[in-house]
Design a protein around this nucleic acid. Structure first.
Lengths: 343, 343
DNA sequence: CTGAAAGCGCTTACAG
DNA sequence: CTGAAAGCGCTTACAG
């Protein structure tokens, strides 16, 4: 492979001059000289080495993504990660950055930090780290541009982006309330994810504000994956006094609930109302179509990327939390309790 | 930031020795010396610079992914890319590689090649490049490990991985045939994607082998996205002699077909049988659940990654095409033609 | 078991 | 407008 030195020799100029034509500046180059260099470059099939360049520039024009998800088998296929990653991809493309997916996963600061701060990326987006992980705290202590998604990073001096989970949960609960429901349950997501915690809080706050009780058996701890949701849903719906409405931690859980309801001969929405969270593509394809809280996943990814790029490029970025608005999408899986008496 | 030189000074050894403890060899280091160096490293909060390392090692332990999809807004959210990327991610993680997503997209060799061969990645996986793109041909001409997914790269001396699209299409057509259908249409995917071309061929071959005619209006050119599928499906089903069975180029198209059928009051599968391709999660959630040809997306990504890693690590990799088996998944969207007379 | 030094391929002051 | 040279932070022969 030809190097800049070969090109310099071939075109009879200094390597400095070659460098300045490669980078189109900052120093002016005489047109004829430029042409001669360009010709030599293509003649030698020369391509600059990004490592050498990065070493001196201290920039790789690359953004790193660290996924917080435990299960590596669905880091990119789960709808949340895919949507966020899409947003990161789009925004990074717009700003001329590539994106590197860290495959290692965070274990602890001593083991994981070195690979993340080795300058191969100009900054890092941490996607939904667990609240009991020290990833963001450790990374924040380093001189590395960092933005968190769906993690309370403000106390650590790190900017972050998320949907307003608290508000989204309230929206869901208030929708049930407005339909006359009072036996409202919540199947939560992973207890060590900020989004799940905030949805629980919003849910409880809405019920409390309405003076509606939430017995412990109606608040079912679970995971965001559909897998264990089936079992939880089955137990919940088999209660002697089952709920008439279920707020699922996300759409995958909601779909699982609807499947279990179907198995149990419980009609949705006639006998059971269900609300999900996310508005994944499947939400509108299930029967009945799922009422859900939409969150702007790609926009979250885009916003985080823009913040990170700003920091990388030296623009000031305050360590604030950017909360995007959730939206209640009413479809067919919810109905007024009155309907039950009607039939 | 501390450099290897600082650590050497601090621990009173040469930089060579520091390097050998960082890399655990290949030269032996006296235990006490090692301890001293390790201590200095943590005292100075030293972390090796990947650029400097990559510059001399000519390795970045990173795999590059180049997406062939035209629409950058769904490069990662479309089920095909997401599944493949998941496989790449998993396999790369297993082999200790990170993965870099090239955001730029291929335009032409002169413009695009430099960014891809600048040594920031040790090799590249080209995911479903268009058949009318010179990406693989150009990349193949460079001294860069390369593997293609869903692209006929063998003639270019490049290994590739794909599902057996031809066979998958035959499976679909033969399923219809076995159910007694003779008016069978095909809504194709993008004409400049190998998968779509091969599915058309397999489809035609199966009909021809059965002596079933395929009039031109039953072979509808389209795109893999659901967007234009609606219009195509509507036109197809409004034909004076509409098909009784439709093989959709992929599941997104199939779902669109079912939606149009529903709008038109055509019962699936009683009046119209539908088969998709991919077996995306939504396939089992639509009503009726979709009969489809499953392709092992993550396995395709994994296989491609293993081939690439082998080449990167110097193991010989013949430029063969690896065809994975498709599988017919029979669900509720297909039925025997006889059923139509029965009701 | 260890050091001194060359070199990876660039960018960018410094000097003209 | 251009060159000669230092330096980015590592790895790895070469020499002991």
């Amino acid at each position: 492979m030809a190097t800049i030195r070969d090109v310099a020799k071939e075109s009879k100029v200094s390597v400095a001059t070659v460098s300045y034509v490669i980078n189109n500046g900052p120093r002016p180059v005489r047109p004829e000289t430029r042409q001669r260099v360009l010709a030599a470059m293509s003649r030698l099939d020369y391509h600059p080495n990004a490592m050498a360049r990065g070493l001196v520039r201290r920039r790789m024009d690359t953004l790193g993504v660290l996924f917080g998800m435990v299960e590596s088998s669905v880091v990119v296929t789960n709808p949340f990660a895919a949507g966020v990653l899409q947003g990161i991809f789009t925004a990074a493309a717009a700003d001329g950055y590539n994106v590197t997916l860290f495959t290692k996963g965070w274990s602890d600061a001593r083991l994981s930090a070195p690979a993340l701060r080795d300058r191969r990326t100009d900054g890092i987006i941490a996607v939904a780290p667990a609240t009991d992980s020290d990833a963001v705290a450790a990374l924040a202590g380093m001189d590395l541009p960092l933005v968190a998604i769906s993690f309370p990073a403000e106390p650590l001096g790190v900017p972050s982006v998320d949907v307003d989970n608290y508000r989204g949960a309230r929206l869901a609960a208030e929708h049930f309330l407005s339909l006359g429901h009072t036996r409202i349950a919540h199947l939560t997501g992973n207890h060590n994810l900020a989004s799940a915690q905030q949805r629980v809080e919003g849910f409880r706050a809405a019920l409390a504000a309405a003076g509606v009780a939430c017995p412990p058996e109606y608040l079912v701890p679970g995971l965001y994956s559909a897998r264990d949701a089936h079992e939880n849903a089955r137990r919940l719906l088999s209660l002697s006094r089952p709920p008439s409405a279920i707020f699922a931690g996300n759409d995958s859980i909601a779909v699982a609930v609807m499947e279990v309801a179907h198995d149990l001969g419980i009609a949705v929405p006639r006998q059971l109302s269900v609300v999900g969270f996310d508005d994944i593509p499947a939400a509108r394809q299930v029967t009945p179509p799922l009422t859900t809280i939409r969150q702007p996943l790609t926009q979250i990814g885009e916003t985080a990327t823009r913040l990170l790029v700003a920091r990388v490029e030296g623009r000031p970025v305050p360590p604030t939390t950017h909360l995007l608005e959730p939206e209640l999408i009413v479809r067919g899986s919810t109905a007024a309790t009155a309907a039950r008496q009607t039939f």
